[in-house]
């Protein structure tokens, strides 16, 4: 029965559903986990990388660019970092669109784009693909971590249907149910950045398949306010910085692992 209503994104099924959108969301629930936690003085974003392997050329991630390895976490504007889950090619296209939208806003209004407005811009595009036929929807969910003078730090989530919502802590991708119930238990209002980082890494280590966390499987970013200039400062961690952070949190690779690998 379902197949008759599958061929186009724009046709309702008799039960009033849009199958293609649901399939897109299904695709996302198999993607690498992305986790965001809103603290009182910043936001933390972490993501699980799926494309790994020692033959993968990561030289561009180690130097150059602004950090990150360009798979899961992207800087959309000086005041917004985003984590993506879903089809990477679609995500790249959306990231490019978001960056252009942010620059257009800066050009028109001489200010960084408000976070919710940027989420709206992307959702307008995504919604279009649920209504105008012939094309498949974007198979991507995003987490937006941003700052603007109106509502200060904000965390948003948007899905392939073009819905978006604001969160204190949320998770998308594989195992998002487990992660969210963990977050629900452990999240406290007015959590500090330091605690938020710890919380994010703890939850990530529980939801990810691998036993140990490391920079080859994890991307990490924070958004805080520069104490001197009071402007938002996004930091997308480089692989070495991710490992250093894990080390500090006591979640780094254990010595025995390195020994095992050596033999």
């Amino acid at each position: 029965m379902a197949r008759r209503y599958d061929s186009r994104t724009t046709i309702f099924s008799p039960e009033g559903r849009l199958y293609q959108i649901e399939y897109a969301m299904e695709a996302i629930s198999h993607a690498g986990t992305v986790l965001g936690v809103l603290a009182k003085d910043g936001i933390v974003l972490a993501a699980e990388k799926k494309v790994t392997g020692k033959l993968l050329d990561l030289s561009s991630a180690k130097q150059g660019g602004y950090g990150g390895s360009g798979e899961k976490i992207f800087l959309l504007n000086s005041n917004v970092v985003a984590g993506v889950a879903g089809i990477t090619a679609d995500a790249n296209s959306l990231v490019n669109y978001a960056r252009q939208a942010a620059q257009r806003h800066l050009y028109l209004y001489n200010e960084d784009i408000p976070v919710e407005l940027l989420a709206q811009r992307l959702c307008d595009l995504k919604q279009g693909y649920t209504q105008y036929g012939g094309l498949r929807p974007f198979g991507v969910s995003l987490l937006y971590a941003g700052y603007d003078p109106h509502y200060h730090f904000q965390l948003y989530h948007s899905d392939p249907s073009g819905n978006y919502s604001g969160w204190k802590a949320t998770c998308i991708g594989a195992n998002n149910g487990t992660a969210q119930s963990l977050l629900k238990q452990e999240y406290k209002d007015d959590i500090t950045m330091e605690d938020a980082i710890g919380l994010v890494l703890r939850v990530m280590s529980k939801t990810m398949d691998s036993t140990t966390l490391g920079s080859e499987k994890l991307e990490f970013a924070t958004l805080t306010l520069d104490p001197a200039t009071k402007t938002p400062k996004a930091k997308v961690y480089r692989p070495a910085e991710v490992d250093a952070l894990l080390e500090k949190q006591g979640l780094g690779k254990k010595d025995e692992d390195t020994e095992m690998r050596a033999t």
Partner: peptide, 17 residues
């Protein structure tokens, strides 16, 4: 459209443009 009004510096920039 956006719930909040443009802040004065942004409004000034837009009007100038």
């Amino acid at each position: 459209r956006n719930i909040y009004a443009l802040r004065p510096p942004s409004a000034a920039s837009w009007i100038r443009r």
